[in-house]
Structures are given as C-alpha cells and as structure tokens.
C-alpha cells in the first residue's frame, strides 16, 4: 500500500503559525526534528499527516536578556544557546546542553524540542526544572507564562491551538552548581544540584535525578530539611538527608536496580560532602 505523504505547513511568522495551529491543533510541530527522526528508524520516516515546520519563524529564533532573566525562543538551536557564553549561562545548564551530543546534533536540536518530548525527560529538563524556568504558551489572541513543572504536568500538555514560544531562565545566583551525566542506556542517570551559601549557612538547595524514561527523582523534604544548616554539614545532617532520599527512591522507584539506587545515594552523598563554606 502506498503511504500518503505528510502535508507540510511552513509559516513565515508567529501570526501565521498561530492561525495554522488553530485550524490544525493535531499537527506535529517540527523544529530541529532530531528526536522525532532519531526515534523513527524507517528509511522514509513515518510522520503525522500534518506537520508545521517552525524553523522559518524569526520570532521563535530570538535570544534576549534582561538583568533578571534570559529569554530563549523555542526554535533556537542548542549550539546558538551555548554561544550566548559560558559566563552568562548557568554552569549546570551549560554542562547539560553541551552533553546532549556532538556539535552537528546541537546545530539542529532546539531547547523547545528538548522540553516538549513527552516519552522521556531530556538532558536540559532537570536543570531547567530546578532553575524555576517559565514557558510561554501562545495561541491566537492570548499568551500565558507557566512554570516548567506545570507545563510538564499538564494533561493534555498544551491546550488546543497553543504553541511553546519562549523559555525564560531567571538569573539566580547559585554559587554551587553540579551537573552529571552518567552513561546512557538502561542504567543511565543525569543529576543536577544547585545551592547558595551565605557565609557558613546553606541558604538555598535543590537537586534532581533523571533516569531513562519519564522518571524524575526529587525530594522537597530533603531539600527543606537541609536549608539553613551550618556548613560543612554534620554527619548527622548528611545521614538524615541520605535516609530521606533513600525512602523517596524506595517509595516511588521500586523498579530501579539496586545498582542504580546505590549510585543515586552515592552521588548525592558526595554532593553533601562538597557543600563547604565559600
């Protein structure tokens, strides 16, 4: 049977995009397309009937900054974001973006695409989640900014006719940032921890682990229990934090191998050791 090929819409500006999206809310939004084509191993990939190609829209390819935040268009390539500069991007985000893949892939992949993949959480997701990033959703006649966490939790992800247009990253002064990517595949893990220290006190702390699939491991209880603690952390503080994380992992990720669970605890333990006064 001969397959019918997709119908491609190529809007030239945001207005056209929103108008097309309104009449074709089911269309696939295609920017870099790296995940879509990587996931589709057929010689001629089978794509949805309607596709909206986003890369000709200038409004989605802008990067701007104010004193308080950096705003990145959803179709800005990862490589272009990296060119914003190591000094300007938060270190953990820089490491996460750089670790996505080779430069050729980073020239195609976009930040919007990285956040819109639903089957699994991509590399930038955990870092952006911890940084209280906001996402702009637009449709004809309206726009709204929502926190990344809500964007991911939304079911359905985006309301009819809406499009992710910008990502706003606040400049928070984290003076301790770690991003780690530990092997790909079944037991792969990504990890991010951010902290602020004031003199000898931990004034802000947040962390998350990402594993293959949609898993995200966070423990607000552990985070808040560590806030205001004197640095370096006492043995008792560390043991309590580790116990809290162990319980979170056991409770919500029973299917994880013991190797992976031990690994999570050992990475977190080394972070606690690294938290020393400035």
């Amino acid at each position: 049977m001969v397959r019918e090929s997709s119908h491609i819409y190529v809007p030239r500006n945001l207005g056209e995009l929103l108008a097309i999206r309104k009449i074709r809310p089911d269309a696939l939004l295609f920017a870099g397309g790296t995940y879509i084509l990587k996931d589709n191993q057929e010689k001629v990939p089978e794509l949805p009937r309607h596709i909206i190609y986003l890369m000709d829209i200038d409004e989605l390819k802008r990067v701007s900054r104010t004193e308080r935040y950096l705003e990145i268009g959803a179709a800005v390539s990862i490589n272009r974001i990296l060119h914003v500069g190591k000094h300007l991007l938060p270190r953990a985000l820089w490491d996460a973006l750089k670790g996505i893949g080779p430069p050729a892939l980073l020239n195609q992949a976009t930040l919007g695409g990285n956040l819109c993949v639903r089957k699994e959480r991509m590399s930038a997701y955990h870092v952006l989640l911890l940084m209280d990033v906001k996402i702009e959703l637009r449709r004809t006649g309206s726009s709204r900014w929502i926190p990344l966490q809500r964007f991911i939790d939304l079911e359905p992800l985006i309301e009819n006719g809406e499009v992710v247009t910008r990502i706003r990253i606040p400049f928070t002064s984290w003076d301790f940032q770690i991003y780690r990517r530990l092997q790909d595949g079944k037991d792969g893990l990504t990890y991010c921890a951010l902290a602020s220290r004031q003199k000898e006190v931990l004034s802000a702390f947040t962390f998350s682990f990402g594993a293959l699939g949609p898993h995200v491991i966070r423990s607000r209880e552990v985070e808040s229990a560590l806030l205001g603690r004197k640095l370096p952390l006492t043995e008792r503080d560390k043991q309590q934090a580790l116990l809290g994380l162990r319980q979170t992992v056991e409770r919500s990720h029973r299917d994880f191998s013991s190797f992976r669970k031990d690994r999570i605890l050992s990475i977190f333990s080394s972070t606690l050791d690294m938290l020393i006064p400035e």
Binding site: G33, Q41, L47, I51, Q108
Partner: peptide
C-alpha cells in the same frame, strides 16, 4: 539513521548537521 556515527555530516548554511536527521522539507 540515529545521528550517532556522523558519517552523513554535511554543511547546512555553513554549519555541520546530520543529513540522516533532516527531512527534505527542512
């Protein structure tokens, strides 16, 4: 066809990209 091996790299508008991950319409 996964953007892993890099043997299909070409330049698009001067930047290297993987041509196996680029559909004709792009």
């Amino acid at each position: 066809y996964k953007g892993t091996c890099g043997f299909c790299t070409v330049l698009m508008d001067g930047n290297p990209i993987y041509s196996c991950l680029l559909p004709a319409f792009a």
